[in-house]
């Protein structure tokens, strides 16, 4: 791994100023993706700005139906939040199945969302819940945030500080994990929100997380697993790799969507 400099930020503003002073700096949260990427020399940042203790990027608050989660909260902290579980158990269940226990103790929500790995779990939740991604400079709707595989609307030096969403009246996430990596080969988050039913799919699409419009329409008139019998996603838009071809993944999307609807009740 190439050498780098390390800075610990006390707040998001502090992190932003440290980043702007660096040649080619990057944010370090849990490091569960960044550190392996640096080891492989696929990333060689001049500076690491550690936001894991940035005070305004920590914490969880629930006010009425609105849930706000700090970007530096770990998967284990989200999974274990009784406050969030009381109002939106689906996101706690999702967090409790990311990676493995040690990874969940380090990896963060903000890191997962900012990286937008095509097989990460959180992007599906953000998109299905119609979440707002809050950064140090603006609020971005999830619909505008995820712009393709490993790509987001974040500008250079922009830092996610928290995400917030309205708890859905019904919601669940069903994941078919790769048995070795535990990344989603297909994960479907279904949410019945004020703006209608939203279905977001991760792990399967060839360009990252996406919404399944046919499925949303079918569930909008009948929120049941059988309503999805005739719904499809285009196999040509799915990832095709050694773990499964596009046709297989397209079928997985339907199976996982049905499981999520059944679990949402």
């Amino acid at each position: 791994m190439h050498n780098t400099k390390y800075h610990k930020a006390g707040s998001a503003a502090d992190a932003a100023s440290l980043l702007s002073g660096a040649d080619d700096g990057t944010v370090l949260a849990g490091g569960q993706t960044l550190i392996p990427t640096m080891k492989a020399r696929l990333a060689a940042p001049s500076d690491l700005v550690d936001v894991s203790c940035a005070s305004d990027m920590r914490g969880i608050s629930v006010s009425g139906n609105t849930v706000t989660i700090g970007a530096a909260m770990t998967h284990a902290e989200v999974a274990g939040s009784s406050e969030v579980r009381a109002i939106c158990p689906a996101i706690c269940d999702l967090a409790s199945n990311i990676g493995d226990p040690a990874v969940r103790n380090r990896g963060t929500l903000g890191g997962s969302v900012a990286n937008n790995d095509p097989a990460a779990d959180y992007p599906a939740a953000m998109l299905a819940l119609g979440a707002t991604i809050k950064t140090n400079t603006r609020d971005i709707a999830a619909d505008d945030f995820f712009t393709g595989m490993f790509d987001t609307a974040l500008d250079e030096g922009e830092i996610i500080t928290s995400v917030s969403f309205t708890a859905p009246s019904k919601g669940a996430y069903a994941k078919f994990p790769n048995p070795a990596s535990r990344y989603a080969m297909c994960g479907v988050f279904v949410a019945s929100t004020d703006a209608g039913v939203r279905v977001a799919v991760t792990g399967a699409g060839s360009d990252g997380v996406f919404r399944a419009g046919d499925m949303e329409a079918a569930l909008g008139s009948d929120f049941s697993a059988s309503a999805l019998d005739g719904a499809t996603v285009d196999a040509g838009d799915m990832l095709s790799d050694l773990h499964g071809d596009g046709v297989y993944r397209a079928n997985l999307v339907k199976v996982m969507a049905k499981r999520a609807v059944t679990a949402a009740g």
Partner: peptide
């Protein structure tokens, strides 16, 4: 108090 993989932490 938490399990961590020490190869993935500086």
């Amino acid at each position: 108090g938490k399990s961590v993989k020490s190869c993935t932490m500086f």
